[in-house]
Design a protein around this nucleic acid. Structure first.
Length: 657
DNA sequence: GAGCACTGC
């Protein structure tokens, strides 16, 4: 096909860049100014480009200037790796032991002590600390980094900080750090906080757009990769795709296409490496291996390469402009996963990946007009997810009326109403809407969605805490059964040895129970032979251990129900009753709570079976409404286990045929 | 009888 690539044209420079903004400084030159600004203002909004050093340098400046006043500086990050990596680097720069003056705290890993004065942590960890100490009294300064990502915990911290600042009357400084231009919004929310811009260390990236919209972005991506390979000097190519399927397709097509190229007209061979979250760790490691001489690496990535993973050596980015995003329908209580256009902020983030080490080029497989038509940023998480856990935490934080909490962007009223209804139905709230004792108070301590917390606590009450621990831990991790189209039959065969006619939860329990009996050194191989995701199982076991500790501290007896799994299934129902469904004559199911018609997902062990009544974890809308992770229950249990909820639905259960 | 992006406590 020679050089017949996409027609790309250069951008005309209409994009507003940080460089054009006033007061922009390299952080080292701004040191004194920053310190005095923090002294003078209660809240500061810091906009820093990539590589501005704001996350590593600023906390050190403030600490050395004595602004912690004997207390500590908390720096939050949305991701564990960032929190731990930055803490290590800062400890090294300051020449102190990690865990002494500088430390970090993330789930399963606490490297902090009473001596820690600069504490890096995930935003969720700071929320956990606030649940115990709502005034965050051990901190003098809180830094909310990557605020533009608008994660659910950071969202809570925004409102909480506003409240604490009133209570502590200037006793707590807040610094909001953002990589994008949302500064005005943050500043406005925090009553006109001072905004500072910091210069970064990023090389220029040339933006290239297609001149006409493309029919198929996958085709266009393939052609563009080949075009770059033929026309451009050395440097690796990063392609953003929406999922495993697309990655596997291009993984097959790129080598086929490159066979048709003469080595003379291109720069050696292309080495195609995939990267996505579900990929096994050993294969993930391939993206970090240096590109062999005379070759060009083509990285096929999901969104994981947008923020979580930085691949070295990338000079060219190919961006089709789409992402697979989850959205939550509060009214129906269902999720859907759809391929949608990215936002301008995401487009900038993606193209920025070409300029980490040298000037680069970004090939956008959409027109410049299309770019200008994208929404500025994707909707914050709070607009897109179930708010049950958030509402529960706000109650613990002393917010009597969660609707009146100072949200930066208020969540949809229906979503908040649904969350409160669910908490009431679970028994986590009393009739006045306060946290119930002891259930509500126990649920808020557990690092689980409230529905799964309820499963666990009911399991404990029904003398099957050991089994409930396993079920809930397995439900909290990524799928354990590896799925790849080519290994389909083997995978199904392997699953049989764990399969239970009682459903997926019991099947998952069987997997974890077997896994726990395997010696540590054998576990990797054991998983490999059975096509099980080793990482998921390792994580499930970690979660299980942590939850077990929680049960012990709640003084809950740890018991096993042995072979009689009825109490366990009742426990599962006691948390998931909103997701109970009854068989209809046409072999579909009707969700009792919402009236939705659903089918059992073909990946479920119950697919093809027709139990009269089921409960499930998740309702996903794709080609149909599918439910996943399903357990068989008895219709008669419904009014026993959730009497208030099923009082008026009794007749419907009876009709269940 | 399909096909799930990514985080986190």
């Amino acid at each position: 096909m020679g050089k017949a690539g996409e027609q790309h044209t250069a951008a005309h420079g209409t994009e507003r860049h940080l460089q054009e903004l006033q007061e922009q400084l390299p952080i080292a030159n701004a040191r004194k100014q920053l310190i005095s600004l923090v002294k003078a203002h209660q809240t500061l909004v810091l906009v820093g480009e990539t590589g501005s050093g704001k996350s590593t340098q600023l906390p050190q400046y403030l600490y050395k200037a004595g602004l912690a006043e004997g207390k500590s500086i908390a720096v939050t990050q949305p991701r564990r790796v960032a929190a731990t990596a930055i803490a290590r680097r800062v400890a090294q720069e300051m020449g102190v032991q990690l865990g002494a003056e500088v430390g970090y705290a993330v789930r399963f890993d606490d490297r902090s002590s009473t001596a820690t004065r600069i504490k890096y942590m995930t935003d969720g960890m700071l929320v956990r600390e606030a649940l115990i100490d709502p005034r965050l009294s051990r901190y003098k300064v809180v830094v909310l980094d990557e605020a533009h990502e608008r994660t659910l915990p950071t969202e809570i911290l925004f409102g909480l900080m506003k409240q604490i600042q009133e209570q502590r009357k200037g006793g707590l400084k807040l610094i909001v750090m953002s990589a994008t231009l949302d500064a005005a919004k943050f500043a406005h929310f925090f009553d006109g906080a001072k905004v500072i811009y910091l210069q970064g260390r990023q090389y220029p990236v040339e933006m290239l757009y297609v001149s006409e919209p493309v029919d198929s972005y996958l085709d266009a991506a393939l052609r563009t990769v080949v075009q770059i390979h033929v026309d451009e000097p050395s440097g690796d190519i990063l392609v953003f795709l929406t999922g495993q399927d697309e990655i596997e397709t291009l993984q097959r097509l790129i080598p086929e296409r490159s066979l048709q190229l003469d080595d003379a007209e291109s720069h050696g061979k292309m080495l195609v490496v995939p990267i996505y979250a579900a990929l096994q760790p050993e294969q993930q490691a391939n993206v970090f291996k240096p590109t062999p001489p005379g070759m060009r690496k083509v990285i096929l990535a999901t969104n994981i390469a947008e923020t979580s993973i930085t691949v070295p050596g990338v000079r060219y980015v190919v961006d089709p402009g789409f992402v697979k995003a989850r959205s939550y329908n509060a009214r129906l209580g269902s999720d859907s996963l759809q391929v949608v256009p990215i936002s301008k902020a995401q487009a900038r983030q993606r193209s920025g990946r070409a300029g980490r080490e040298a000037p680069g080029k970004a090939f956008r497989l959409y027109t410049e007009a299309a770019y200008l038509g994208l929404q500025a940023a994707s909707a914050p998480e709070i607009q897109r997810v179930s708010l049950a856990s958030l509402a529960l935490q706000l109650k613990q934080l002393g917010v009597a009326d969660v609707r009146a909490f100072p949200f930066m962007d208020p969540p949809p009223p229906t979503a908040l109403a649904r969350a409160l209804e669910l908490l009431l139905a679970l028994g986590a709230l009393d009739q006045r809407g306060a946290l119930s004792q002891p259930l509500g108070a126990q649920l808020v301590r557990l690092p689980l969605e409230p529905v799964f917390g309820k499963v666990l606590l009911s399991g404990a009450a029904m003398s099957c805490s050991e089994e409930a621990l396993s079920v809930v831990s397995m439900a909290s991790t990524d799928p354990v059964f590896l799925s790849s189209r080519n290994k389909q039959e083997v995978s199904t065969e392997m699953r049989k040895q764990f399969m239970s006619p009682l459903g997926d939860h019991i099947t998952l329990l069987n997997v974890l129970t077997s896994y726990m009996k395997v010696t540590k050194s054998e576990r990797g191989r054991w998983c490999e032979e059975r096509l099980l995701n080793a990482r998921s199982l390792r994580k499930a076991l970690e979660i299980r251990g942590q939850l077990r500790e929680h049960l012990l501290s709640l003084k809950v007896a740890l018991k096993s129900c042995g072979d009689d799994l009825e109490p366990l299934r009742r426990a599962i129902l006691s948390g998931l009753f909103m997701h109970a469904a009854i068989l209809l004559p046409d072999n579909t199911y009707k969700v009792i709570a919402s009236g939705q018609i659903v089918s059992i997902h073909p990946s479920s062990v119950l697919s093809g079976h027709k139990p009269r009544c089921i409960v499930f974890d998740e309702l996903l809308r794709t080609t149909r409404n599918y439910v996943r992770n399903v357990t068989v229950v008895e219709p008669a249990w419904l009014p026993e286990i959730a009497p208030i909820f099923f009082q008026n639905k009794g007749s419907m259960v009876g009709r269940g045929h």
